[in-house]
């Protein structure tokens, strides 16, 4: 009891202190400095109309590279922590017929919608990470509905590595063409899709990179699900 009341008092003090700090940051008012520059120049400089994905992939591409690295390390870490020689699914009860049939029908639609999200990253809300998470959700549904379902490990791990390398290679091509890493060569050098802004074939290398990122995120999250759902089998 004493511990709880002490914790609550401390937290109230911290909360008051945070509120005092935020009182100097007015809500709902224009505080943009760099943001206005991005909004004004995004169409001319990147060819995308979704400013958030243009910032994430183009203006601040190193953030995304680090983010992908963090996710890769997490997936490797989960695999290393849960590594064991004999691992099997431990689910024992088969799902009902309605569940398995429903998931079998739903699975291609979930994958298709995930693909739609990441291909249209430069036009609509979404992008690589939500698209990849949607694809992983499809595989999670399969894992939940079928007790013996397993992702094809070899293919998934190879895909994960290849698309990760593809992202770095796209960046390195920019380095070779123009002198800095993650330079948008498809837009800046080729002017590909310049008369097409707002349609599918535009946006420089944002759709390319988001396709790679989504495949990477989807395979990594599916691998994490796979690792977590398995348990060591005692002989």
């Amino acid at each position: 009891m004493l511990k709880r009341s002490l914790a609550i008092i401390t937290l109230l003090i911290i909360g008051y202190w945070l509120a005092q700090g935020l009182a100097g940051v007015p809500f709902g008012q224009d505080k943009m400095l760099v943001g206005q520059y991005y909004l004004n120049h995004v169409e001319a400089q990147t060819g995308a109309i979704n400013v958030v994905t243009a910032i994430v992939v183009n203006y601040r591409g190193f953030d995304t590279l680090g983010e992908v690295t963090v996710l890769f390390i997490a997936s490797t870490g989960v695999a290393a922590l849960l590594w064991g020689r004999k691992k099997k699914r431990t689910a024992k009860t088969e799902g009902s017929v309605v569940l398995t049939t429903g998931i079998s029908l739903l699975f291609p639609f979930v994958l298709m919608f995930g693909g739609y999200i990441f291909i249209h990253g430069h036009l609509t809300p979404g992008g690589g990470f939500p698209g990849g998470a949607t694809i992983a959700t499809g595989f999670l549904l399969m894992y939940m509905a079928f007790i013996s379902y397993e992702i094809p490990h070899g293919k998934f791990e190879v895909t994960e590595g290849l698309v990760g390398m593809g992202y770095v290679i796209v960046g390195l091509i920019g380095l070779a063409i123009s002198g800095y890493f993650l330079f948008d060569w498809i837009w800046q050098t080729w002017h590909w899709g310049a008369g097409n802004i707002g349609r599918l074939f535009s946006g420089g290398f944002i759709p390319v990179i988001y396709t790679l990122i989504a495949l990477k995120v989807g395979t990594e999250l599916s691998g994490i699900i796979d690792n977590m759902l398995k348990e060591e089998v005692k002989e």
Partner: peptide
């Protein structure tokens, strides 16, 4: 748009 880009990173 910048806070949304930052949060996209933070969520992942």
């Amino acid at each position: 748009p910048i806070p949304q880009a930052l949060v996209l990173t933070a969520i992942v």
